[in-house]
Amino acid sequence: MKKNENMKNRINKLFNNKKENILSVYFTAGFPNLNDTVEIIQQLEKNGVDLVEIGIPFSDPTADGPIIQKSSEAALINGMSLNLLFEQLKTIRESVNIPLILMGYFNPVFQFGVERFCQKCAEVGIDGAILPDLPLHEFDNEYKSFFKEYNLHNILLITPQTSESRINQIDAASEGFIYMVSSSSTTGTGKKVEDFQQDYFERIKQMNMKNPRLIGFGISDNATFKNACKYAEGAIIGSAFVKSLSANPNLKESIAQFVKNIQKNT
């Protein structure tokens, strides 16, 4: 992709303008209520969140912990689907400016049609996709051209077990940012970030990768967010946010309070 095209993507714009304390928040589309999607995104932006990951619910979320499993199950019971999600997001760019990413498992996207998925993302203004069970070589072989055509970034993950050579390979193949899994764990089960990950964070920081990094998994509060931000451009919060949505059904209130707590003193 040419540099100027890259610049059109809101994800690149964000990372060009902001180098630290970037807060990305994940939620499951269709939860707590089927039609909360747009309001959740609007409230997140309004309260200063830099990037939003919209979860596409799947019946078998093998890389997620109990909180996101439950939200996915509830969202599916509520009637969420990829078709409906794109319908809900149709006019999202009239009110929201921050980068938006769709995150989910590959099968619903595969059934929707990968090319059609990319095209729809471009239509409604989605900037990237995180599809954890779409491995890099399958992406390269089959789908890369669609993502390029629609200027959609495929966000790749690295973990504490990822070898240095593979990290370099992922860095070379990545656009936007790299999703750095903080620990060997499914979402929402992380122990305190600072206990185990310092060495790993430090090691990755020293690698001077070309892409910025956001640290995810186990980031749940102000302390874990701040610590992660010492080693990367920012961090991603998923399960803790989904949990806060189930605790207080008043979206406006609960989102304002949640984001304020995470960002205090940063």
Partner: peptide, 12 residues
């Protein structure tokens, strides 16, 4: 077939 694994399973 194939190995449609998340990166967390890649090393194993």
């Amino acid at each position: 077939g194939g190995a449609w694994i998340p990166e967390m399973m890649y090393t194993n």
